[in-house]
Design a binder for these strands. Sequence first.
RNA 1: GCGGGCGUGGCGGAACUGGUAGACGCAACGGACUUAAAAUCCGUUGAGGGAAACCUCGUGUGGGUUCGAGUCCCACCGCCCGCACCA
Length: 1017
Amino acid sequence: MARYNPKDIEPKWRKRWDDEQAFLTATDRSRPKYYVLEMFPYPSGRIHMGHVRNYAMGDVIARFKRARGFNVLHTMGWDAFGLPAENAAMQTGAHPREWTYANIDHMRRELKQIGLAIDWSREFATSDLGYYRWQQKLFLDFWKAGFVERRESYVNWDPVDMTVLANEQVIDGKGWRSGAAVERKKLSQWFLKITDKAEDLLAALDDGRLKGWPDNVRLMQKNWIGKSKGLSMTFRLMDGTGPVIPENRAAIYPGPRDAGGRQPHGIPALRGAAPRAGRDDTNFPAEEGNGGIEIFTTRPDTLFGASFIAVAPDHPLAQRFAAKDKAVAAFINECQKTGTSQEAIDKAEKKGFRLPLEAEHPFLKGRKLPVYVANFILMGYGTGAIFGCPAHDERDHEFALKYRLDIIPVVLPPGEDPKTYSVAAAPYVGPGTLYNSSFLDGLSVDDAIEAAIARIEAIGAGKATTQYRLRNWGVSRQRYWGCPIPAIHCEKCGVVPVPEKDLPVKLPEVPASAFKVPGNPMDRMPEWRNVPCPECQGPARRETDTFDTFVDSSWYFARFAAARDDRPVDKGDCDYWLPVDQYIGGVEHAILHLLYARYVTRAMKETGHLSIEEPFANLFTQGMVTHATYSDQDGNWILPEEITSKSAGFGGEDCFPDELRGLIEAQLNNRTGEFWDAYREQTQSTGRFFFRDPQFSPLRVEGLIEFALIGPIEKMSKSKKNVVSPVDIIAKFGADAARWFILSDSPPERDVEWTDAGAAGAWKLVARIWETVEPHQGLLLAFPPPQSGGGVGAADGGGPLSHAARDSSPASGGANADLRRATHAAIHGVTEDIEHFRFNKAIARIYEFLATIRKAAPHPVIPENAEGIYPGPRSESGAPTSGGPGSPPPRGSGRDDTAGSTASWSLAEALSALVRLIAPFTPHLAEECWKHLGGKGLVCNAPWPAADKALLVKDEVVLPVQVNGKRRAEITVAASADAKAVEAFALADADVKRYTEGLTVRKVVVVPGRIVNIVAN
RNA sequence: GCGGGCGUGGCGGAACUGGUAGACGCAACGGACUUAAAAUCCGUUGAGGGAAACCUCGUGUGGGUUCGAGUCCCACCGCCCGCACCA
């Protein structure tokens, strides 16, 4: 029998798929389409197990949908721009382009080994001129349509990467890629106005347009957009330089003590428009508002509890005072120092600095509110100013305690007595009834909010407003390796778009050495930078910023579907292919990438490129691939491949010589310290010794052995060295086994732990399927499977088997009927499981099905000479095994007689189904089996088997019988038996009688097909 | 702090809308084959008790609803993820 050898077989079928262009996809409007897409990779150079998992999942779906009759689009490309290429240039001297494209070539070769059903003719990299030139065209269209803005603003500056980061790319005050503390810097920036679409981006999350998305991702996006309704209103200001309580003053800011001699501030006339509500950044007109301070609040009901006004350190009002008053400037400076960093923010004390201003309460004529600059007010949200109501807000409460401000309760919790209720100790933020609030008294919080807004609007002091947490998307990057932003700066005309006829703006050629210097080399290329203004022909210069790479990945799915040489995408083709039916990727992209892509899709719709607003109909977020970590006694991480383990027990199979054990134990017992305590405990609990030594060699034991400690199971990462290389795994076990295992062990949305034993188990399965199929060469020639299969719409039961009717008749009965039932149950179950992304369960069912087949068609016991069967570490280590793939050991006689005699067509049906059911998971094995059995054509083109529902129904069912809730017996009844008959049958059962003896039966619950429960006492 | 999710054998995990808990895989153990080992094949495997038939207990902890709870409700404990001074 030919031993299954993936090393030969897998490349053979991949070549065949290539030769036949099996996965080339044409736009074919006569057929139903299915677009499955996995998030495309960054070409870092090597594939990792996370890629294997991601693309294996997509491939299962793609192959499955093909078999179900869909015209499937499944593509691959490269998210190829970005900083690592420049970092590599800095370190290795290779030009970013060379580095990137060399990586792509290498990764493509590795990726192809997985055996994915991908239309490689559609491949592109975002760094291809053919891609990014159309991105420039899109940008110009967006610009024309008003989706683009450019302004000076404070930006998050990453001092290591020397670039600007979007707010979303700042994590805990650090750059998402470099991890460096982010600084504030003022720069002119390009923005895409995503906030204009905030409302629709939010609405789509809940109105059914994204019903195919996981709840948690929808929720994350909802929180990120952060809509809140409230009131924006203006507090009138007046000079507040009257009596300031000295001790209070001191407490405000223990800075340079010039309080005593401070001159009263004169308040110049305030002119100009009030700061606009809804502003989303820190860019302001030079002159701030006249009428007062505009604030935003979601709790206008608490206006009567207001006791102060606070503005952000960046607020223009604060800035203006800072310009004149060193103490203010010093305070602001201090705020900014502590402000930007991480969640120390959380513990940071609330601090304020009193400005010589007072605000007038809108309803209480005499009431004056002091105005502070406060470190906890964010310029980026709302208007950068608030009124403080210490009684009903945690932060305001803390602030008021510190600066001895009034704490006036205005909301009375249900059941509290207004005379005794106090908020001195803690604010109350829950629902209740208004009091101490004039015309709002007696109203609920919700009603009072409405009433207060109405009154403020009536007196013209403000209006109802909606705020979003979401900021506009800064897309400028001061980098070379990205898509150039097609704009020109002219002294006379300002910033003008590059005319379309002048597109593309190609990245200039720069020498690799240019990257030794930090910053953007394009800034240092006058010959490229200096161009005539397209409008006035005067001297002008090119924009040297390039796009954030999230722009690149925001429309690539459309380009895959409809690339053209003369436009970004073909709308007609997009109308057929889009939206993506199934998008698969990591949950780490739940917010950034997915939100941007949703926005860009809307923008493309409005500029006439697409007809849809939501790009991804169904989204699946897969878990990570994890692995145990190993470390040595110095705390250094160790690669899994360097680890050997030996049984610590006696007489184990691990061939661990007793005399060595003595030496090991002696060494262990002599040592003290944390590592050795942990090691001894590990040996106890696992029953094994772990060593750093890829091929455990007894000679090294004496003093030279290195012990290894197992650490926590974590996401595979280079820094912890807990990585296994997909290429090594494929070389060892084959791609099919790798695909099988990575999908078999855990539900796809959860993390999966890669273990060598599991991978070896998957390999065993591959071999066992071959071994089961092998004796039945040509079986399908005698009993061809139906070609009608499970096409679209022909779901389960849709494919009548010509011979099915014959054989499912009771006459055929017996073992055949059981096998047939198992076959159709497996088809039904696996189909459902794949549809619902339950790959682990689908695989469990295949195991069960295989066991049934093997019972029905016993296979001869395995050959005398099976060396090399298991391609594990042993054979890896050198000596080629005897025989080898080319010369299979002889395998008994008479194996061909099966097709004609022993095997019935029901076995043919079972094997034919089995092979097609495994095809999405282990495509190479499936092709080999299909060919061997005599299947027609390639199995990747074969129709999905259809389950005959009639065979799923059992005539008899086994029902458990409970007495008082405890299972006491089982009865077998006809499936059609009515409740009464079942009850009678159950009560008559001997075991049941035993337990009901002497008791009175009070009630009998019969759940048809499920259970019988007898209540007796 | 706010929001969301999850706790089931030695391990990964099954269990449809409440209906036989532990499918399937891994590991472990026993047996067959082998000079031997590996590989392969067959079997056992939640815990406790019993010679056996069987019995008792068991889904993080404590209560509750129900004929019946891993599943529903309340409280608590633990872990994971997202957001984090968003007014």
